[in-house]
Design a protein around this nucleic acid. Structure first.
Lengths: 192, 192
DNA sequence: AAACAAAACTAACGATTGTTAGTTTTGTTT
DNA sequence: AAACAAAACTAACAATCGTTAGTTTTGTTT
């Protein structure tokens, strides 16, 4: 069966992400993961190098998704409001498409090994920096209310980061509706 | 030394909370905990019954703090805005006074044993229900903007729950200032 | 049918986990 | 000084952890 090269690996990683989301990285054993896939734990090592590798793949994958998007939006010559809307939209999209990966990133990034953790934190800091710049520019241009920059940033990101929790509970998750509602709640509270 | 009855136990629990906050429940061994206290792991069992007991104590303690407060505020005959302000204030206070316990509750509640988990979730659901009622009443009385109730609730609670993350990073955490800022961001975006 | 590689298996390893039993130290009370 | 209890200790247990080595099964390619 040498036709599926990385297919099985992806299957393992997605199953792992689902389990990690439910119980946390450390509470999921390789035997648990293997059982969910209908194989023995040792068979996993035909496809992956270590448990750590799985975690690294999951978290850096979704972290890079965020980085990629904001790197594209940041330099555009559009209003602050438009940029923030694009960011909210991106969070919603990733929440919908990569729920398990996102949950895993939020909850288990501190269990990454040293190299991966450093890379993750670098990406995260760069992301926060860009959002901070956008908010700051909006306040400077008098497009946003001049509340404390840091706390506004924190509040915005907190809500967006934990969106997946709310998504899991409400199955009637309408992408267009939630986009409008979040814009109203998060941005109308900030926009003059 | 039979004078300190529960003093040492509290010390253990607070140290555990600090470690759990940093590394997560499952990543902290009883030997790690003991070492932080300068004793051997087996000595812990002179004071506590199990690792689970520690987690249960931490989480239910802070959960009951929230319950107690909202049970007191909920039936008061004051405006919705005043109630929400009281809730925000309480979250700030607990964030400041019980940072480690709160972080532990947010991150490790799913590692509680069956009985404690059920009790925690009951308390949490009751809390959310009361906040939902308060928001609903405010919208009904036309005191709040009529955005989607569930998503407003989610956004509010997300920010408040993860306040401790922001607090850890910013050491210039002025209680009075943050109270005002959060009221502006969270409530002014909602209040007409 | 022979050859081959992917992917499963069995069996086991050394390390670590939470916890228990039994003993000694420590400090207070009589 | 004798008695006592709190709280430390040593030593070990059964279970589980991630992982490795070596082998067999499976399915495709020649």
């Amino acid at each position: 069966m040498p036709f599926m090269k990385t297919e099985r690996k992806k299957e393992i990683i997605h199953t792992a992400a689902r389990l990690f989301k439910e119980k946390g990285y450390n509470a999921v054993s390789m035997r648990d993961l293997a059982e969910s896939l209908g194989i023995k734990a040792s068979s996993l090592y035909n496809h992956i190098a270590s448990k750590q590798e799985i975690l690294g793949y999951i978290i850096l994958d979704v972290a890079e998704n965020f980085t990629e998007h904001i790197t594209r939006v940041f330099p555009q010559e559009i209003s602050t409001t438009k940029k923030l809307e694009a960011i909210v939209e991106n969070h919603i999209e990733i929440t919908l498409k990569k729920t398990d990966f996102l949950a895993c990133m939020n909850n288990d990034w501190m269990h990454l090994d040293k190299a991966n953790k450093q890379q993750y934190l670098t990406l995260r800091n760069a992301y926060e920096f860009k959002v901070r710049e956008i908010l700051g520019e909006g306040m400077k241009q008098n497009e946003l209310k001049s509340t404390d920059l840091e706390i506004t940033l924190f509040s915005l990101l907190s809500t967006l980061r934990t969106l997946y929790l709310w998504y899991s509970k409400n199955n009637n998750f309408n992408e267009e509706k939630i986009k409008q509602d979040l814009r109203q709640i998060l941005l109308s509270g900030v926009i003059k």
